[in-house]
């Protein structure tokens, strides 16, 4: 931290403690005007300080860009290997999911039964599956499904949670009771079990259907988090200060409450992307998620299950990608937590 100026003026203040408390205390009993004495000391302490150190004052002007919480967090994150590793993996996965054709060696739907169940080789890096499709290309294309479901679901869940949680936490009262009870009930529905029940009723299931079901089932956890975070922030004096200033509720929520309440939500959202990706894989594995001919790691793992002894690589490759993806998002969440939660610093 290079905020020496505040430290320096603090020191200047400290230096005068003896003097001023003495001056001040003296006058307590006798009721003499202190204005002249302390006012002089007062002004010289702080103003003088800045005049004396013009170099520091110039440095100050450059400071603000990085002085916010996000600036501090970013500076800490840049130095953290865990964050860097997970960020690189996530960025690569996102690029893969956007341009899978660029990374794949074969067309994942162009399969040749003659090539059924080939071992990994220079031609087929991850081998081939029962239908003779290039397994590496299918794994690459599977990234697209996982990443898009993870991001779509968490995006919408966050919106629901932020709106609902801040309304519930900020307004309190009966609104809070109603939202709170609904959330409590939703919270106890297990995502996977609920997903099985709902998705088994739907005959054609694409990325949209699965995402929608996961959004419907998954918002409660995050909403509770937003609500508790908003409640904690709401108790701060600066929220009262804004009210006393005449700020509208919307303004208070948007400008004062949410910016201070959002950090834990971002942390959990990052972790939640991983959780949702795993949930999609689990649902597809159980046969109620995506359907062939869609390409998904969950489906690949499901099909590999029967040949786990004869062709273990069919399980290992999509499994490794899935694990790596989920793991990266969870690590990212942890790194963000370390950087954003000042108490852990």
């Amino acid at each position: 931290m290079s905020d020496d100026p505040s430290k320096e003026s603090q020191e200047a203040n400290d230096g005068t403690i003896g003097d001023e408390s003495h001056l001040y205390a003296d006058t307590v009993g006798e009721h003499l005007p202190v204005d002249v004495v302390t006012a002089a000391g007062d002004e010289s302490t702080e103003k003088h300080q800045f005049r004396q150190t013009p170099g520091v004052a110039v440095g100050l002007d450059e400071l603000p860009r990085n002085a916010s919480l996000w600036g501090d967090a970013w500076r800490q994150l840049r130095r953290q290997p865990i964050f860097l590793i997970s960020a690189v993996i996530i960025v690569v996965l996102i690029i893969i999911s956007m341009f899978p054709g660029f990374f794949a060696t074969h067309d994942p739907h162009q399969c040749n039964l003659i090539d059924s169940l080939l071992k990994p080789s220079s031609e087929h890096w991850f081998g081939t599956d029962l239908q003779g499709c290039d397994y590496y290309s299918r794994t690459i294309y599977g990234t697209r499904v996982s990443i898009s479901i993870g991001i779509i679901v968490v995006f919408f869940v966050s919106i629901i949670a932020i709106v609902g949680g801040s309304v519930s936490g900020y307004y309190g009262g009966s609104v809070d009771s109603i939202i709170g009870r609904i959330t409590d009930i939703w919270f106890v529905i297990p995502t996977i079990l609920g997903g099985i029940v709902i998705l088994s009723l739907v005959s054609t299931r694409g990325v949209g259907t699965v995402s929608l079901v996961l959004i419907v089932l998954g918002w409660a956890t995050l909403l509770r988090l937003v609500r508790s975070s908003v409640l904690a922030v709401k108790a701060n004096d600066y929220v009262d200060a804004a009210r006393a200033m005449g700020a509208s509720n919307t303004r208070i929520i948007v400008r004062h409450v949410l910016p201070n309440a959002i950090a834990p939500v971002i942390i959990v959202s990052a972790i939640y992307v991983g959780v949702i990706i795993a949930a999609e894989a689990a649902l597809s594995f159980l046969g109620v998620g995506l359907q062939l001919p869609a390409i998904s790691w969950g489906l690949m793992i499901s099909n590999a299950q029967r040949r786990i002894i004869t062709a273990p690589y069919l399980l290992v490759f999509p499994g490794a990608f899935l694990t790596l993806t989920v793991f990266s998002f969870i690590l990212m969440g942890d790194a963000l937590r370390d950087a954003l939660d000042p108490k852990l610093r």
Partner: peptide, 21 residues
């Protein structure tokens, strides 16, 4: 309108200023 006529100075200077502003 009243709240531009009556303003407040709070007790705790650490809690009364929004740290994100």
């Amino acid at each position: 309108d009243l709240r531009s006529e009556i303003t407040v100075i709070f007790q705790d200077p650490y809690a009364s200023l929004n740290p994100r502003m």
